[in-house]
Design a protein around this nucleic acid. Structure first.
Length: 1041
RNA sequence: GGGCGGUUAGCUCAGCGGUAGAGCACUACGUUGACAUCGUAGUGGCCACUGGUUCGAUCCCAGUACCGCCCACCA
């Protein structure tokens, strides 16, 4: 059956994809050859939130190119597929979906039911994603598909796996090494999702904000001389004041102020440092303190300090031992819990007066005045501003107003409100304003594990491409902050830490209250207990049964935790706890357990931390986790560290840096040798693709319209290093055409019986015809170029080389040369050559355009196997015949010249011309003779005869070693020919003047490299030669008039 | 405020010491033994600006302007 005119992508892709999958073409180690190295890539696991977008298509195309390339070379290749549970994003998507279908809310459902629901979402999205990857042609090992939450408790059937175990083990190990700790810290709190998030999940966006100025009055009616001076110390302003002026962009937080801070060097406030001010709207006094933080040149130079709601203020509060009063609940509303305001504020005054307290007590005190309780934070802001204005404590300016009716002037005081852009933090998922919130969270002590990650890149053990990525990497890691890894979500790996009641040792009670209200970070306490608890002397030598305390146990399972708990009980009391019961408790309920125990009904409660881990904690273990760690599997042995990580530069910190730190911390090895970072895919205009802009391009739509190969080739061609990748469908269409071009070259071959009698064509033939010799050399050049480009991750250069070779060399020239050759004596060797060359095109293009090449492979011969497992060629320059190369350059150059001249002089395309050779050296003559049929056909020349000189009215053609003339009196457009020659001459003269200018400069001769000088001389000679010929032709033309 | 990158043909981008290339778009011609998802020929560039290094700079260096991106606590 003859080939169709075009490749039917829609039909063939589905069929071929199924063949690859069923034949396990991407199986780990498929087509591996002895003695070849391993090559492995871990897919950046897509989130199970929906479907893949163009960025994924791009990213996975590059991976597949590398994987197919290595597999064909015989490397033991693994491309590990899988998906990421993406805690916050997936929980969000699922809840959105639930709302859409009027299902019960998450809280109504309860944790267990909700998790079942999310698993459904996971299954659905996973199916979509895997289907998309397969449509793209991704040759992953589908039998190894992984999921970052596989094997988690509650996973439905079919979701078994060991990733969860690996994550838990790492947590436990890192905990035991003191790399993970729990602590009450100010974290970024997302009031929408009601969870802590890491610094990286916060987007700082500039918004139009306001700054309000309030007066805080000195206590006891005191006053002071407020004096401003200029740089020279001259007094510029003096006033008796009874207040200090503060500025704020967040007035509602003033309710939780713990102090007003001024810079120690600020002479304006020196008289009142240490004095107390009355906190407006609150029945509290707060001190004026001196701290380095305030900038005396900004605003009034005095800063209100709200330790619980601002990162800077928190640092100041810590330094100065100020209480941090939390004002908001988890939803960002003003607190409405705890004791009545009067009671709370009374206690706050006691604390301020020196009454001993604990961090947990301070946290439990609700100092939001009754009026504001329960208000949304932005409502509270308005209310606070209004109330401050009402009591006259806003800083005001005097405004002169003219009454429009009476025309009378009067003065009015107006509060100072500056409008200014401020950087406001938003949750990257929720898009709501992030609230700094003082909560108990788990942290990775990144400072302790960062150094090996930095070192690995500094020493070149891990290479980041492009290099600029390394700088960014250093910059972030060198300034790394503790990583908050706990999330108050339900979907994720639950933190493997249990809290249990254990008997307290003497002296422990009061000082060792661990859990809510702990004085010591839990990690430290636990470590201390591990180190000291069994040494009775260290803890006073005696057990007391008087009390119980909470102790935390980090364990891989509840059973392990129970064993640990029992051991502590045995060590302390000599007996295991009678009735250890696991209870479910939210953190807010923990204090109840603390107070209701001991021994309520004889049960000893223990409970698990309800929080889950940050998604990136688990995806940070992707390389080892997917290979079966902690078991020492053969795959781990073989494929780890992985070869390359291909990922977007936007997740360098989120993922790449964390994988580096975690792998090095856990298995003391790098996760990958090379990191290839690519830019973000944008639309044709460079705009970010977003649903709201409506410019999202669905990769499946592109594949439907142009085929997967076209998308893939476009992706490869776009993959230049750095910057934004603008995706243009016109370009994709162009590469679809490229596929068609190859298809039709094969179709031409088929029509000419090229495949017949050339079933085996693994080795290049040894033809006689120059054109055949030449194309073999061109093929070798292409192979060398493609390999070099891919070795450097220059997908664009590889794609470019292939495009130029297949279209520019094979189709434009070689197929045309073959036409006359098929009619001659060398028809058979030409068939053999073309069969081989087209095979090479398929092989070399296969990593880029796997579908069409696989289809052609099957169509054009009887093959031992599929193209996906064909051998990648290794031939190189030895296949280049320099003589043939030179000759064909001469031939194609001559054809170009004749065609160009014909077109410009408006010779009818169909007209075959007689040509004269006015000069021809031996080499030129030989070249002509050997390729006469080719030149005649492509240049539409009827005959060539020798002539002593060019006749009048002829167009002149110059070639190396030869001059030709085409007599066209009466046919040619003399004006056009004159113009053509004039233009050619101008160009030549420009070149000549440049060259001779250089050559006449003695310094050039002296300093330039010899070969450069020689080249310039040769060029000058050649150009001068040509120019002479052109001038002669112009002279002849002039005679014609 | 700090860091990184960019500025080359109408558009999207390569090139990166010897005075410029591709694809698309555009123009003209074209049913030549595969291909109109095509062919042939062409038009189109003070390589952002200003200095410097060099025999020679789009390329190296410094500065300027503009544009991106990332990071950052100025209340």
């Amino acid at each position: 059956m003859p080939m169709e005119k075009t490749f039917n992508a829609a039909e063939a892709e589905a069929r071929i994809s199924a063949q690859w999958i069923e034949g396990k073409a991407g199986r780990a180690g498929a087509h591996a050859k002895p003695g070849r190295p391993a090559f492995s890539i871990m897919i950046p696991p897509p989130n199970v939130t929906g479907s893949l977008h163009m960025g994924h298509a791009f990213n996975n195309t590059l991976q597949d190119i590398l994987v197919r390339w290595h597999r064909m070379q015989g490397d033991d290749t693994l491309w590990q597929p899988g998906t990421d549970h993406a805690g916050i994003a997936t929980q969000m998507v699922t809840e959105r979906e639930m709302a859409l279908h009027q299902e019960p809310t998450r809280r109504e459902m309860g944790r267990e039911k909700f998790l079942e629901r999310v698993w459904q979402q996971k299954v659905k999205s996973r199916g979509t994603i895997i289907g998309q990857l397969q449509r793209l042609g991704a040759s992953c090992d589908w039998d190894r598909e992984a999921f970052t939450m596989s094997g988690a408790p509650g996973a439905p059937a079919g979701e078994a796996g060991n990733f969860h175990d690996a994550v838990i083990k790492v947590f436990v190990d890192m905990y035991n090494k003191g790399l993970i700790y729990r602590g009450k810290r100010l974290v970024n709190w997302d009031p929408h999702f009601e969870t802590a998030i890491s610094d990286l999940e916060v987007e700082n966006i500039e918004v139009a904000g306001h700054m309000w100025h309030f007066k805080y009055e000195l206590a006891g009616g005191e006053t002071y001389d407020y004096v401003e001076k200029d740089e020279d110390g001259n007094v510029t302003f003096r006033e008796k004041r009874n207040y200090i002026s503060i500025a704020t962009t967040r007035p509602e937080t003033m309710l939780g102020d713990g102090a007003v801070a001024v810079h120690p060097s600020d002479t304006r406030y020196a008289p009142i440092v240490g004095k107390m001010v009355k906190l407006p709207l609150c029945d509290r006094l707060i001190p004026i303190i001196a701290d380095e933080y305030p900038d005396p040149n900004f605003g009034s130079g005095a800063v209100k300090i709200t330790g619980a709601h601002d990162f800077n203020d928190y640092a100041v509060a810590k330094r100065n031992n100020l209480p941090c009063y939390r004002l908001m609940d988890t939803r960002g509303r003003m607190r409405d819990d705890g004791a009545a305001y009067e009671v709370a504020v009374a206690r706050a005054r006691e604390i301020a007066a020196g009454s001993p307290t604990t961090e947990s007590e301070v946290d439990s005190l609700n100092l939001v005045p009754t009026k504001y309780r329960g208000m949304d934070r932005f409502e509270a802001r308005k209310a606070v501003i209004a109330d401050i204005n009402a009591i006259g404590l806003a800083v005001t300016v005097m405004i002169r107003e003219t009454d429009p009716e009476t025309g009378s002037e009067h003065l009015r005081l107006e509060p100072v409100v500056e409008s200014k852009p401020i950087m406001q933090p938003f949750g990257d998922r929720s898009k709501v304003v992030i609230e700094p919130m003082l909560t108990d969270q788990w942290f990775v002590d990144t400072a302790k594990i960062v150094e090996p990650a930095l070192e690995a890149v500094r020493t070149g053990r891990v290479k980041i491409i492009p290099e600029s990525g390394e700088k960014t990497y250093y910059h972030w890691l060198e300034n790394i902050e503790p990583w908050c890894i706990s999330r108050q979500l339900w979907w994720g790996h639950q933190i493997p830490v249990w809290t249990a009641m254990v008997p307290s040792l003497k002296g422990e009670v009061g000082s060792w209250r661990i859990g809510v209200g702990s004085e010591i970070p839990l990690g430290e306490a636990a470590q201390f207990l591990r180190e000291n608890a069994y040494d009775e002397k260290a803890l006073g030598g005696q057990l007391t049964r008087a009390g119980l305390l909470t102790m935390q146990f980090c364990a891989a399972s509840a059973e392990d935790a129970q064993k640990q708990i029992a051991k502590v009980w045995i060590d302390r009391t000599g007996a295991a706890p009678s009735n250890l019961v696991e209870v479910n408790a939210e953190p807010s309920e923990w204090p109840q357990f603390l107070h209701d125990t001991p021994n309520k009904g004889g049960d000893i409660p223990f409970w698990r931390d309800p929080d889950v881990l940050d998604t990136w904690f688990s995806s940070g273990l992707w390389p080892i986790g997917t290979l079966g760690w902690p078991e020492q599997t053969p795959e781990l042995e073989k494929y780890f560290p992985t070869s390359v990580l291909v990922t977007g530069q936007d997740i360098l910190f989120f993922w790449v840096a964390r994988m580096m730190m975690m792998q090095l911390a856990v298995v003391e090895d790098i996760p990958f040798h090379t990191v290839y970072l690519h830019g973000l895919v944008r639309d044709a205009k460079g705009k970010k693709m977003s649903k709201s802009l409506g410019n999202v391009i669905d990769p499946l739509e592109i594949i439907d319209e142009y085929g997967a190969d076209a998308l893939r080739f476009a992706n490869a061609a776009m993959a230049s290093l750095g910057g934004v990748l603008k995706l243009d469908t016109q370009r994709i269409a162009g590469y679809r055409n490229f596929g068609t071009k190859l298809w039709n070259a094969c179709r031409f071959a088929e029509m000419n019986g090229v495949w017949e009698g050339h079933a085996t064509r693994a080795a290049p033939p040894s033809p006689q015809a120059t054109a055949n010799k030449w194309i073999i050399g061109e093929t070798a050049k292409a192979r060398v170029e493609v390999d070099a480009a891919l070795a450097d991750f220059r997908f664009d250069q590889a794609a470019d080389a292939l495009y130029k070779f297949v279209w520019g060399k094979v189709c434009d020239w070689y197929v045309e040369f073959a036409k006359p050759l098929f009619d001659g004596d060398q028809a058979d060797e030409t068939r053999a050559t073309m069969a081989w060359v087209l095979d090479q095109c398929m092989i070399l293009l296969h990593p880029f355009t796997p579908f069409i090449t696989e289809e052609l492979w099957a169509t054009t011969g009887t093959r031992a196997g599929m193209l996906v497992h064909a051998d990648w060629p290794t031939y190189g320059t030895e296949l280049i015949d320099t003589e043939a190369d030179r000759e064909m350059t001469w031939v194609t150059g001559l054809i170009d010249e004749i065609r160009s001249a014909r077109a410009q002089v408006h010779v009818p395309v169909g007209l075959k011309l007689d040509m004269l050779a006015t000069a021809m050296d031996a080499q030129a003559r030989a070249a002509w003779t050997r390729n006469e049929a080719l030149i005649k056909r492509l240049a539409r020349v009827e005959s060539l005869t020798d002539a002593s000189s060019a006749p009048k009215g002829a167009i002149a053609i110059a070639a190396e070693g030869a001059s030709f003339a085409i007599p066209l009196e009466g046919i040619i457009d003399i004006g056009a020919e004159k113009a053509r020659l004039q233009k050619a001459l101008e160009k030549l003269e420009k070149e000549i003047s440049g060259l001779s200018g250089r050559l006449s400069n003695p310094k050039f001769i002296e300093s330039a490299k010899e070969e450069v000088v020689d080249e310039a001389r040769a060029n000058l000679e050649a150009r001068s030669d040509e120019a002479a010929k052109v001038r002669a032709a112009m002279a002849r033309l002039a005679e014609l008039g």
